[in-house]
Amino acid sequence: MAVLIVRRLGSLAVTLLLLSVIVFGVTQVLPGNVAQMILGPYSTPETQQALEKNLKLDEPAWQQYRDWLTHFVRGDWGTSLRLGQQIRPILLLRLQNSAYLALSSLIGVVFFGIGLGILAGIRQNRPTDHLIALFAFLGISIPAFVSGSLLIILFGGGVWNLLPGSGYRSPTEDVRGWLTRLVLPTITLMLLLLAYVIRMTRSSIIEVLTTNYIRAARLKGASERDVILRHALRNALLPTVTVIAINIGFMLGSVVIIEQIFAYPGIGSLILFAVSNRDLPLLQASVMVIGIVTGLANLVADVLYMYLNPRIRYR
């Protein structure tokens, strides 16, 4: 197993290295004068030259790449062109905000996903099961910007004025404001993920319920509740855990949309800011961070899967 993990780490390193080439390459294929593109049509040649010097655009590409990569690995992520500040503190703060959002969604997904999955599993092929399947399918199919906008209309003031539809409060200053502003984006993100967990839990429960040890538990007189919660659920949880880990990368993609809808200051809205303002250093650093987090989450998913699967664990 240790060998597998090391090999997996190696392939992650290769992937991230290639990704860094791609992310860096994007700046190289920008058509025309990069400095002018960044500064806009009203820039003077002097400011353009200054920026070129500042970005070291006059050096050969491989040298720029090497410098950029070594700085990035050392934790020096450069200065944002638009914000004029060090990128790392901003990026990490935004990542933290997005992590709140991701974490609250994960909690909700685990809770509702496993609950609905069990329910669908024990009511297999009955109306409840079909209803849950429909709900999951709609959640997975409807784009985040559609469900998010509809949620704002429904609960953010259009129909019922229950929750603030947008914005952000720091949890250290205003816990209530922070929590209430987290609810709608969390639900939007949850809707996208629920289907995975529901389907996974459902099929594991159905599979586990046909095994002999569940029959044994029933025969020894355990209540149906005990059979499900103590015997079946424990085994059904294993695949569900990996599915959740795999989807962390995906969550980081959807936050771009969700943070835009709800004006939530996370890493997604930061990337969007970088794209709209052609803030290349900021864009490169944020995309690399997303790549790293996604890669690590997948690694964790793999390791968990190996660990939870004895056939692989003891190889």
Partner: peptide, 22 residues
């Protein structure tokens, strides 16, 4: 395959944003 790995390491919307910038 390694190149597709690297491209797939990013959520598709992020990859799309990267290309839109270009």
């Amino acid at each position: 395959m390694r190149v597709t790995d690297a491209l797939l390491a990013l959520p598709s919307i992020i990859l799309a944003l990267l290309i839109v910038t270009t």
